[in-house]
Amino acid sequence: MDDLIRSINSLEIEKITGESQETIKRWKKGTKKIPESAIRLLKLYANGDATALLGKDWEGYTFSNNMLYVPEWRRGFTSGEIRAMFWKCQLVASLESEIRLLKQRLEESQSEIEALEIKADFYRQQVILESRFGMMLQRSFS
Rank of each mutant, 00 (worst) to 15 (best):
D3M: 11
S7L: 07
S7E: 14
N9G: 00
N9I: 01
L11D: 09
L11M: 09
E12C: 08
I16L: 05
S20Q: 04
T23G: 01
I24W: 13
G30R: 08
T31L: 10
K33A: 06
E36P: 02
E36Q: 12
S37P: 00
S37R: 11
L41W: 11
L42E: 13
L44Q: 12
Y45L: 03
N47F: 15
N47M: 10
G55E: 03
Y61E: 07
T62S: 15
N66G: 08
Y69G: 01
V70T: 01
R74H: 10
G76R: 08
E81R: 08
R83S: 15
A84Y: 15
M85N: 08
W87C: 02
K88V: 02
K88R: 03
S94A: 12
S94L: 11
S94K: 14
R100D: 12
Q104Y: 05
R105V: 00
R105A: 03
S109K: 05
S109V: 02
A115Q: 12
A115M: 06
E117K: 03
I118T: 14
D121N: 15
Y123M: 08
R124A: 13
Q125L: 10
I128L: 13
E130W: 10
F133K: 13
G134A: 15
M135G: 06
M136C: 08
S140L: 13
S142R: 07
